[in-house]
Computed example of a mutant assay.
Amino acid sequence: MRKVSSTRGFAKVAPHVVPALDRAVHRLTRGKLLLSALMLPGVILTSTGARSGLPRRTPLACMPTPDGLGWTLVGSNFGRPGHPAWTTNLLAHPDADVNWKGTDIPITARLLTGEERAAVWQDLLAFWPPYATYQARVEREIRVFRLERRT
């Protein structure tokens, strides 16, 4: 699957198919399962639209933090040009929610930069090597966010 997910064909098809399948499976299992989580852990991010102000639900792969209290999200957009909309939403409205294994959790998102991003990027490449292919395919720096639980 790693090899397939690195192809340009996958990048063209996946953004239209994977989120729709994830939403359907998530709804049918009452939040207990994401189809893509069979490959990688995943959350449903509910953010506030940067322009609309409306709630936006996006299924996303994630890397749980080593302490198990947060998550790292990668705005790879499957290696396509342009940042995904959910990253713009988090920049405008960092307080959001994730659904993790059926539980809604309030979070605050923080864009990682500099040395912190570089260190986490190495962990991400070990976690999911296709991120290297995605980054090589685009001129932009892929956005990486740390999600931390709000109390």
Rank of each mutant, 00 (worst) to 15 (best):
L54S: 13
M39G: 14
R30Q: 14
R80W: 07
V43Q: 05
C62E: 07
S76A: 12
R56K: 09
R80M: 10
A61P: 04
A85T: 13
R80S: 13
L60G: 08
G75C: 00
G79N: 00
T48A: 04
D67C: 00
A37W: 10
T29Y: 13
S36N: 14
T87G: 11
L69S: 11
M63H: 07
L33N: 09
S36Y: 10
P84R: 06
F78C: 09
A85C: 06
L60F: 08
T88A: 14
H83N: 13
A37D: 13
A50L: 06
L35E: 10
L38E: 10
G79M: 01
L45K: 05
P41Y: 12
K32H: 15
A61Y: 04
T58L: 07
T87Y: 04
S52H: 06
S36A: 12
T58Q: 06
T58M: 06
L38F: 15
V74R: 00
L73S: 07
L33F: 12
G42Y: 07
W71C: 02
P81Q: 09
N77L: 07
G75D: 00
N77E: 02
T65D: 00
L34N: 11
G31H: 03
P41K: 11
P66W: 05
L45E: 02
L28F: 15
R80C: 08
G75R: 00
T48C: 07
R51Q: 12
S52E: 08
T72S: 04
R57C: 12
V43C: 07
L69Q: 15
R51M: 04
A85Q: 10
P64V: 04
K32F: 12
T29P: 11
C62M: 14
G82L: 03
G31V: 04
C62Q: 14
G49K: 01
S76N: 09
L40W: 10
A50F: 03
R30V: 11
P55A: 08
M39Y: 15
I44E: 09
S47Y: 00
A85E: 11
P59D: 05
W71P: 03
M63R: 11
T58W: 04
L33H: 12
T46Y: 14
T46C: 10
S52M: 05
G82W: 07
L38M: 14
S36L: 14
P41S: 11
